[in-house]
């Protein structure tokens, strides 16, 4: 709050005092008071007015400066009213009351949406668990009746299964802390489990698997990491090159602060102009236009989960030669996820 602002706000008061003093001076002149006397009275009155103004200005300035300071430093600005010293003037009280009412109304509104989103997530989770039973029985029916017809239906079932998994992990991704246990996990085991999970698609596509230097232990949640690896594996299968058999290489390297896991394929790769956006929700790019089955969700969910797990994920590619995805695990067991 600037002094000029304050003065501008009180111009009516000053104008009134000015005219009052002019009138009083005229009266005093009629009453034949000396010019010095009139000047003295004028000075005296203006001095007291100045003192009153300064005291009032300092009080308000202190309050409003505090308001702005808190506004700037606060992360969640809507709790502002909780942090203000009680103002000792009416406008301040009004401001505080307004802030309080507003933030309360907003909190109520947010609570409604929180409830909605929790209910929706719970529904999705239940739904996913329900649908897994028919998927399991359909897979068993295929296993017991292997014919070319059931074979192709089973492939579709595997697609359904993957989409269902995706939706479960997406629904959970905002609440990782509810289902999250950091343990020491072997990279080799996690890669192995992910490969076994998707063995059918990989073997059908005559995939050549390479695993090198995977004897590292990282601290993370194996279930989530396996899901992320699974998504990457399925991407490699989906975007394999028609000209050569799929080759998937898993290598790890230990650096000072982290362990990096590289997943390299020899598929069709990603166009240079699309590279920067592959982790965006719904982004499908050039490959998306050529492949009807792209949803733009897989890598988006991977990135989101990695963020929650405190891992970083990066993707590099040369179009026509393949994609390398790197997941970086921090070293040390004191690691905690963000948020």
């Amino acid at each position: 709050m600037k002094f000029r602002q304050y003065l501008k706000d009180h111009w009516i008061l000053f104008l009134c005092i000015f005219f009052a003093m002019l009138l009083i001076s005229c009266l005093l002149m009629i009453m034949r008071l000396s010019a010095e006397g009139i000047l003295f009275i004028n000075l005296l009155v203006w001095l007291f007015v100045l003192i009153a103004i300064l005291i009032d200005f300092m009080r308000k300035k202190k309050f409003y400066d505090n308001v702005f300071f808190n506004l700037e430093t606060l992360d969640k600005k809507y709790v502002l009213h909780e942090l203000l010293d009680p103002p000792r003037f009416a406008e301040g009280d009004i401001l505080c009351e307004v802030l309080y009412q507003c933030s309360k109304a907003m909190a109520d509104e947010v609570a409604v949406y929180k409830n909605h989103s929790r209910e929706y997530r719970e529904y999705i989770e239940t739904w996913v668990h329900e649908i897994k039973t028919p998927i399991a029985s359909a897979s068993l029916v295929y296993e017991n009746n292997k014919t070319p017809v059931t074979q192709s239906m089973y492939e579709e079932i595997l697609h359904i299964e993957n989409f269902v998994e995706q939706s479960l992990y997406y629904a959970r991704s905002n609440y990782v802390e509810k289902d999250y246990a950091i343990k020491a996990c072997s990279l080799k085991e996690m890669v192995g489990t992910a490969l076994k999970q998707h063995a059918k698609q990989l073997i059908e596509n005559k995939t050549v698997i390479e695993m090198k230097q995977l004897d590292h232990t990282v601290f993370s949640d194996s279930k989530w990491v396996q899901f992320i690896l699974g998504q990457l594996i399925l991407n490699s299968v989906k975007y394999q090159s028609p000209r050569r058999p799929l080759r998937l290489a898993f290598t790890a390297e230990k650096q000072a602060q982290h362990i990096a896991l590289h997943i390299r394929d020899n598929g069709i790769g990603i166009a240079k102009q699309d590279l920067g956006r592959v982790f965006e929700q719904g982004f499908t790019g050039e490959n998306g236009r050529n492949f009807a089955k792209s949803t733009g969700m897989g890598l988006f969910i991977c990135k989101k989960l990695c963020g929650k797990l405190g891992l970083s994920i990066a993707l590099d590619s040369v179009q026509g030669e393949g994609v390398t995805v790197t997941i970086t695990f921090p070293v040390g067991n004191m690691h905690l996820p963000e948020d």
Partner: peptide, 25 residues
């Protein structure tokens, strides 16, 4: 079909030897 850590923990605590989630391969 439930695959949360809590379910796995519950099963193990109650004496199950292994835990597989549907749709199992």
């Amino acid at each position: 079909s439930r695959n949360s850590d809590v379910d796995e923990l519950m099963s193990m605590n109650l004496g199950a030897d292994d835990f597989i989630t549907k749709p199992y391969h």
